[in-house]
Nucleic acid binder design. Structure first.
Length: 464
DNA sequence: GATCCACAGGAAATTAAGGGTC
DNA sequence: GACCCTTAATTTCCTGTGGATC
């Protein structure tokens, strides 16, 4: 499809071709092909066994050794060690980009600390993990902590006043945690802070020990963030509660990622399954993406699975390249399919303009106009305002589906120029799979019907 | 230098849904 | 059942933007 773009072919004819071809292939497939699941399992069993422990490549797997994180492990061990002598560790913050081992190091230290508590026969601390991307309202954070500690009573998703839950939590902490410490780990804490009430709940949690006078138990707060500058959003009172304790997790380089993959590979695969060049290649590809160890592990796992499916005994570099392509496609497809209907409609509006007017600079006003033309074609979808559609465009840009750049055209106003960041044909194939959307894909927007893009007082004329 | 355009985007208000208490 | 509470999604209102044009 790349050469189609370069030669500037007419998209209508291309899409008609794709549609027609797709239809023929589909019909042929339906007539001649039947998937034999029993045979598939039989064949799968005959394929060489290459995975010894597949879970070792999961991001949640904590190995017995974490390479290149000794400094951070030592620092957290120093902060938390006082617990072994009846002390209360300081609250602290950890920073680092995605896949730099922040959560893994904390889980690793928590496991070692638990083992030591068992060894010297003192009460083990509680560890409560809260990912603020999923649980990010004050109410839900309190409910999550309560529900983790409580085996009987559970807090519902909504309904109770916050102060009631707070009081229940205080009682529960003393009952369940007893004379020990409860570590509350707030992953992606920056998301919480940007939300209304985020600073207040942090303030309350950091003051549990003093202000609310827990009788027996103690609480220690650990904040984890991907954003180095997030402290600027913190309330000074909250910031002071973290006592200046901070840990930075630098990104891994290719050599460090190679070491990590080497160790995990030995746990995950049977001996001599991985080609010599495979691990350095995975490491190099992941290092390009900000040294993300999670990506590197995902790549190695997918490469292994592809080799297994094609009955190969070796995980060679060709499977790494295939895995990379497959992961990118899978992620985009899954993401778009899981989007709410309204945002899918906005994306569909952009698609229709790009399809029918490939040379047009797409602006927010055009997108909204096309959105107004198509939203009624989907049952149960109500019209959104321009303001909301503007936010949805931003969400698509944030997800990397489109590129959006604010430009000023002086006397002709200010708008956003939007460009698709994935190939048009790939987007077509994804949208075609969405039940309520697929029938709109052949619609021709009014701006394409009369051959005139939005030109208010010749606005954006110079952009053509 | 004032005016204008077409929005961008922040903040507060509103709405609907889910749930609890009395 | 009335009322209270929370949440997420959305609307409404508003100010800001920045460079071409007047």
């Amino acid at each position: 499809m790349k050469f189609f773009i370069e030669l500037n072919f007419n998209w209508n004819s291309i899409l008609e071709f794709i549609l027609a071809r797709g239809k023929v292939l589909k019909e042929n497939n339906e007539l001649n092909y039947k998937f034999d699941i029993s045979q598939f399992y039989t064949d799968f069993l005959k394929s060489p066994k290459i995975f010894k422990n597949r879970d070792a490549l999961n991001p949640t797997y904590i190995p017995n050794n974490l390479p290149h994180r000794d400094i951070q492990i030592k620092r957290i061990a120093e902060i938390t060690a006082c617990l072994l002598k009846d002390g209360v560790p300081f609250n602290f913050l950890s920073y680092g980009k995605t896949g730099t081992g922040k959560t893994s190091v904390i889980r690793f230290v928590s496991r070692k600390l638990d083992e030591k508590c068992n060894e010297i026969q003192i009460n083990r601390p509680w560890w409560i993990y809260n990912n603020c991307q999923q649980v990010n309202t004050p109410y839900r954070i309190l409910a999550n902590i309560f529900n983790t500690l409580s085996t009987e009573e559970k807090i519902p998703p909504t309904g109770l006043p916050k102060d009631i839950i707070f009081q229940k939590l205080l009682n529960l902490l003393d009952d369940v945690v007893g004379n020990s410490v409860c570590f509350i780990v707030l992953d992606e804490i920056d998301i919480l802070i940007k939300k209304k009430g985020g600073n207040e709940i942090l303030y309350d949690l950091t003051r549990l020990n003093e202000k609310y006078q827990l009788k027996k138990s103690r609480v220690c707060l650990i904040g984890i963030s991907n954003i180095l500058k997030f402290k600027s959003f913190l309330d000074p009172r909250v910031l002071s509660s973290f006592g200046g304790e901070e840990l930075v997790f630098p990104a891994y380089n290719a050599e460090e990622l190679t070491d990590i993959l080497q160790e995990r590979g030995e746990i995950a695969f049977f001996k001599n399954v991985i080609s010599e060049e495979t691990i350095p290649l995975c490491a190099a590809l992941a290092a390009k993406e900000h040294g993300d160890a999670r990506k590197a592990l995902q790549l190695l796992r997918k490469a292994g699975e592809l080799a297994e499916r094609s009955h190969n005994k070796k995980v060679s570099p060709k499977f790494v390249y295939k895995a990379q392509k497959s992961l990118e496609q899978d992620n985009t497809e899954q993401f778009i399919e899981s989007l709410p209907k309204q945002i899918q409609l906005v994306l569909c509006s952009i698609f229709l303009i790009a399809k029918h007017l490939p040379n047009l600079k797409i602006i927010t006003g055009d997108i909204y106009d096309v959105y107004l033309e198509i939203y009624e074609k989907i049952p149960g979808v109500k019209k959104l305002t321009r303001r909301r559609v503007s936010d949805l465009i931003n969400e698509l840009a944030l997800a990397g589906i489109i590129k959006a750049e604010v430009v000023s055209m002086g006397y002709y106003g200010r708008s956003k120029i939007v460009k698709l960041d994935i190939p048009l044909d790939q987007l077509f194939k994804i949208l075609e799979k969405i039940e309520n959307i697929k029938h709109i894909l052949n619609y021709k927007p009014i701006i394409a019907q009369n051959g005139k893009a939005k030109l208010k007082k010749n606005t954006f004329k110079k952009l053509f």
